[in-house]
Design a protein around this nucleic acid. Sequence first.
RNA 1: GGUCUCGUAGCUCAGCUGGAUAGAGCAGCAGCCUUCUAAGCUGCGGGUCGCAGGUUCGAGUCCUGCCGGGAUCACCA
Length: 595
Amino acid sequence: MIEKLLTETFKQAVKDLYGQEITGKSAAIQKTRPEFEGDFTFVVFPLLRFSKKSPEQTAEEIGNYFTKNVDEVEKFNVIKGFLNLSLSNAFWLDFFNKNRNKKDYGKKQPGNGDPVVIEYSSPNTNKPLHLGHIRNNLLGWSVSEILKANGENVKKVNLVNDRGIHICKSMLAWQKWGEGKTPQSTGVKGDKFVGDFYVLFDKKYKEQVNELTEKGMDKDEAAKNAPLMQEAKTMLKKWEEGDEEVRKLWAEMNGWVYDGFDVTYERLGVEFDKIYYESDTYLLGKAIVEEGLEKGVFFRKEDGSVWCDLSDEGLDEKLLLRADGTSVYMTQDLGTAQLRYNDFHPRELIYVVGNEQNYHFEVLKLILKKLGRDWADSIIHLSYGMVELPHGKMKSREGTVVDADDLMDEMYETAKKTTEELGKYNDFSEEEADRLYHILGLGALKYFILKVDPKKTMMFNPQESIDFNGNTGPFIQYTHARIRSVIRKGKEAGYDWSSEDLKNSDILPKEKSLIKLLYEYPQTVEQAAKSFSPATIANYAYDLAREFNQFYQEITILKEEDESKRAFRLALAEFTGNTIKSAMWLLGIVVPERM
RNA sequence: GGUCUCGUAGCUCAGCUGGAUAGAGCAGCAGCCUUCUAAGCUGCGGGUCGCAGGUUCGAGUCCUGCCGGGAUCACCA
C-alpha cells in the first residue's frame, strides 16, 4: 500500500529536516480533494512548532524531500499548509495492470481460524416477515459476506423463536375457528395462514376484554382474566409439560410457518449454516440459572422468582426465572449464547438485533461475566435502527405493517413496468425477462435499505424506494450492463486488451479518477468490515458507477483509433464492471449483463 | 425521571480516526441521443451543519449545557 510508504517517508522527513520523532496522528495521510491537483495530501500545521517556519515553507521542504526520496512521487504543490503529492502515471498504471485481472480483487481469502458467528433474522413463528425483518436479514447476510471478504471464517446462524405464548395464541385460534383448514386446503402461504389466526385471536381476545371492562372490571384485570388468555396460558403450560396433543399441533403449525419462511428467504436470497430453535435451547438457560444460584451470583425472592442484582453496575435487578419456574427471554438467551459458544468457540459472536434491545444485550453480557464466562466480551450486538414509514411506525394493530412478500411483489412489478415503458429488450424470452425483473426489483429494494448506515433509524418511503433513477440499485446495475455491452462489442470487434502490460502515456483526468477509485476498493471493504456497515460498500458502488458514467460520457472507448488507448479503456471498463459486480455481491445484489 | 441515541438543503441520505470553499440523489428549472444502452450526462437555484459555550493553529466531527425527536428502564420477546 503506497499510503504506508508515504506516511513513513513523511515521518522520516520530519526527523531528518527538523530532528523530531512524530506519531502517526500528526502524519495523517488523506486523499487530495478533487478540486486540487494531487493524489495524496499531508497537513503540515502540526509541524510548525518543530520547523519554526511558515506553513508554505515547511510543506515545500517536505515536498522536496518526497520528490528526492520516493520515485513514485512525481511532483507536489503547496496550498497554505497543505502538501499535495502527485504520484507518477507509472505508479497508477502499475497498480492497474497488476490488479485488474485479479479474480477476487479487494477480497481476502476466507480464513479457517476461530469462526465469527453471526446471528440474524431470528423470527417469531406466529406471523409473516415484514419490512423490519427485511432490514435485519439484508444486514445480516451482507455483513456476513463483508466479513468473509476480509478473511473471516463466518458462520451464519438463525435462532427461531418457535415457542412461547405467541404461538399458543395462533394454535388456540386455529383449534377454535380453524375448521380443520390448512395452507394446502386453502392455498394460503403457511406463515400468512398462521399469522391470520394470530390476528383472529387478538380480535376475539379484545372483544372479551371489552365485555369485561363494560361489566366494570379494571382494564388490567380484564386483560389478565379474559378466558382466551387463560386458555392460551394453559396451553403454554401444557406445552412445557410435553402434552402430546399440544406438541403435535405445535409441530404442525410451525411446519406451515417454516414452509412459508423458506419461500421468503429463498426469494430474498439469504441462507444459514445452522438454525437454532428456542424449543431446543431454553432448558439450557434454566440450567445456567441454577448454576448462578449455586455460585451466589443470582438470588431467589420469597415468591420463588430468580433475579440478578446489577445495581453495582448502575442497573436494576433483572428477572431470570418467573415465580412459576417458567423461563423469560433472558433465560433463553443465556442458554443460546452458551450453546453457541460450545458449538463454535467463536472469536466473535455477533447478534444482528434492533436497537430497541440495546439494554437487553448490555445486561446479557454483564450476567455472563458475572457467571465467569470470559467469552462474554466476544459478544457484539450489531444494533440497527428501526424502519419507519412516512405515516409513522409500523403497527400491526393499525394495519400499517409492510409485508415482506408483498413488498417484493411490488418491486418486481415496478421493474417490469419500468422496463416495458422504456421499451427495452423485447427480444428477451419470458424466462429472461422474469429473471431480469426479479434482479432489478430486489436490487432496488436491497440497495434502498442497505445504503443507509445500519445504526440509524431509516425512513422507508414506498414512493422513493421504487425509483430507479439516481442513487439507486438499478442505476448501478444499469452501469454494469452498460459496461458489459461495451465489453461484448469490443470482443466482437476482435479487440485484444489481455496484455499484462497495457501502456498509456497520457492518462486523462476521468481515467485517472476512475483508477484512483478502483484503488480504494480494498480499503473500503476493510472499512466496511470494521464498522459492520454495508452502507460503506453501497456508497462506494454508487460513487464508482457515477464516476464511470462520467468517463463513459466524455471519452469514447470502442471508436478510439489509437490501439493502446482503446485497449486501456476497454480494460479500465472491464475492471470497473468487475468491481461493481464484486461490491454489489457484498450487498446481496446481482448485476445483469443486459438491461 | 434515569440511561442510551439521533438532529446536515423542501425530502431521503453521505461526510473514515478533527483539516482546504460541507457533498450526492429526489423534487424544481434549463440543456445534451444521425456517435459505445438517455434507467445516462451537463448546468442553475437551494445550508447560521438544532441552539449556546468550550478545547484546538483548525470543529459538521471532540467536551459541557440547553432545546427537539426516538429507544429503553416489564413475571413481553
